[in-house]
Design a protein around this nucleic acid. Structure first.
Length: 563
RNA sequence: GCGCCCGUAGCUCAGCAGGAUAGAGCACAAGUUUCCUAAACUUGGUGUCGCACGUUCGAAUCGUGUCGGGCGUACCA
């Protein structure tokens, strides 16, 4: 068992199902096909600990009023040997269950037993899943979009790991194709401008405007001089790219490492050019998905279910980004055998989603195995004003800048505070504020407070007891009960975060844990209480510590023992 | 024009495999510390769920239309 919810769900399902079957056999309900019995937590505490809407689900088929059905079921319900102490029909036909506190005390046993594994669930069954994220162009520094995608992707990967999937984190390095051409052309232009003067050499219209390009050539010249001016353009670009690309990649790698992100695989686009793109194009040809026109090779839109045709191989013989990407995804699924692939793309790439999915079906890979998460872009706020970031204008606020200003914890926390679909305004002033306005501090403070309490008790040789040896039934104050209920939700939260691919719910969850803890702390003393009560509370405090730590570890945020 | 995302309290957002009086945090106001970290807690009001139709016993949640904001619509990536 990994979760008390699991146990309660089983109990309620069994009890309800048995009651329904008994009712049917007595002719009180018609013989119908049973809908799945859903257990939910009522919004209001007054509606019991858990409820089910099964009576309403059955109403149509059974041709009876939901309230009536609920009562029939309840009258035949046998709850011996379960947590359930009272059942009632309420509202439009809900069946509400009231539990004794035993399930809460078992929660503490479970947390104490599992410790850092509390919250681990198994919905993945070891399935191989890849999360590909950030995959920033190695033509410049990481920007805010990468920062959000990075925090999100890394946490999604962590949540899936906790949920029983075998996870690979991957970064796709676009070290080939058109943008490398543009990168080379941009470097070359800046190089020649340095030597002959800015007004003498035009900068390519679609070149990379960033300061970093200039920095590269400045460094290059100081290390290697200006003899490249004499060489051919082709050679010049090649040398400059070979100089700058590894530097950019290292910077990206270091920046992400600082951000707490470590990849299993850095996959280079260039490796696809020695056969795999061609192979993939041949498969598309064989399956009849391509047409040739105007000297180019196209993906047939009509056949693939797209609005229009898409170029795969240009007139000049070079594959498009899309051709490489199809080959890349074929590599993920076919060559490397991932059951499921999750890609994180910024909103500016959403147009590519339908095309990639269609392309997967076209090469014979079920496109439902490819999940693409589109996250909305970020607006950075500082001093109440929008702080612009743009790789093109050269006035970019990079990931490094952000981390310098707000730190890793705040960045990761804030980027995981909202659902990926929501537009995100990042308030840099709030992120560094050391007050209760700042949710990062709020949560970390709760943890530090717990650690401090434990230290104080340890000074008097009072240590956390074994859960089994504690009189847990002494925990009965509203603040204690509320906190334990919250802790009991954790595995469920992990499971939901994995299913919806929304780690933001864990960030919000840990804020709730912190809040419930602070309330408990203000209402209940530990040190100095009667011994049995003190140990019971001490156990609860330590369980809270375990849960907060587990969540913070999961989302990659520091849990400070002192603040 | 077409496509995708978003529109819920003054602000930032949850809720959206339809279900019980729509929730948090912030802001604002008043209180709480001889006591384990007051970076904390307690109490207080707020909503045409963008708008309009439709499906349903029941819609913030599903469908259609519409308005507003963002993004996309290249032989760019």
């Amino acid at each position: 068992m990994y979760s008390i919810y699991e146990k309660i769900r089983e109990q309620i399902e069994t009890v309800v199902k048995d009651a329904i079957l008994r009712s049917i056999s007595k002719g009180l309900l018609p013989e119908i096909e049973l809908p799945p019995i859903m257990m939910e937590k009522p919004r209001e505490e007054a509606f019991g600990d858990f409820s089910t809407n099964i009576a309403m689900q059955m109403a149509k088929q059974a041709r009876k009023a939901p309230g009536q059905i609920a009562q029939i079921i309840i009258d035949r319900m046998k709850t011996d040997g379960t947590f359930v102490v009272r059942v009632e029909a309420a509202g439009p036909g809900f069946i509400n269950f009231y539990l004794n506190n035993e399930w809460l005390y078992e929660t503490l046993d479970l947390i104490d037993e599992k410790k850092e594994d509390y919250g681990r669930v198994n919905i993945g069954n070891g399935k191989k899943v890849m999360v590909e994220f950030v995959s920033a162009n190695p033509t410049g520094p990481l920007h805010m979009g990468n920062a959000r995608g990075g925090a999100l992707g890394d946490c999604i990967a962590s949540v899936l790991e906790k949920s029983g999937y075998s996870v690979t984190r991957e970064f796709y390095v676009n070290d080939a194709g058109n943008q490398m051409e543009k990168f080379g052309a941009s470097l070359e232009a800046r190089y020649l401008q340095k030597i002959y003067g800015e007004d003498k050499i035009p900068f390519p219209e679609d070149g990379y405007m960033g300061e970093d390009i200039i920095d590269h050539v400045t460094e290059y010249i100081s290390e290697h001089g200006d003899e490249l001016a004499q060489k051919s353009s082709e050679e010049r670009r090649k040398d400059l790219v070979e100089y700058a690309l590894p530097k950019n990649l290292k910077r990206i790698k270091d920046g992400l490492a600082r951000y707490g992100i470590h990849y299993d695989v850095w996959f280079r686009e260039s490796t696809l050019y020695s056969g795999e793109i061609e192979e993939t194009m041949n498969i598309l040809k064989e399956r009849g998905f391509v047409t040739e026109k105007d000297g180019a090779l196209w993906l047939n839109g009509e056949k693939a279910g797209l609005e229009r045709d898409e170029v795969l191989i240009r007139q000049n013989g070079l594959p498009t980004y899309m051709a490489a990407d199809i080959a890349y995804h074929r590599n993920k699924f076919v060559k490397r055998g991932f059951d499921k692939v999750i890609n994180l793309w910024g909103a500016d790439h959403h147009g590519h989603v339908a095309r990639m999915k269609a392309a997967m079906d076209a090469i014979g890979v079920d496109s439902s195995r490819l999940e693409i998460i589109i996250f909305q872009l970020v607006r950075l706020f500082k001093n109440g004003e929008i702080a612009k970031m743009s790789k093109r204008t050269g006035r970019a606020i990079s990931l490094d800048d952000l981390l310098d200003e707000v730190g890793v914890d705040a960045a990761r926390f804030f980027f995981n505070l909202k659902t990926s679909g929501s537009h995100l305004d990042f308030d840099m002033d709030l992120a560094v504020e050391q007050s209760n306005n700042n949710p990062v501090f709020y949560v970390q403070y709760a943890y530090a407070r717990i650690c401090s309490l434990l230290r104080k008790l340890a000074e008097d040789n009072i240590v956390v007891p074994d859960a089994k040896a504690v009189f847990k039934e002494l925990l009965s104050k509203p603040e204690e009960i509320k906190l334990i209920k919250r802790l009991a939700e954790y595995p469920e939260e992990v499971s939901l975060a994995a299913q919806t691919l929304e780690p933001s719910r864990l960030t919000r969850y840990v804020m709730d844990v912190a809040s419930d803890f602070h309330s408990f702390y203000n209402a209940c003393r530990v040190k100095g209480e009667e011994e049995n009560l003190m140990y019971a509370r001490l156990l609860l405090v330590n369980c809270t510590k375990i849960v907060i730590k587990n969540v913070l570890d999961l989302i990659g945020i520091n849990a400070p023992e002192k603040m």
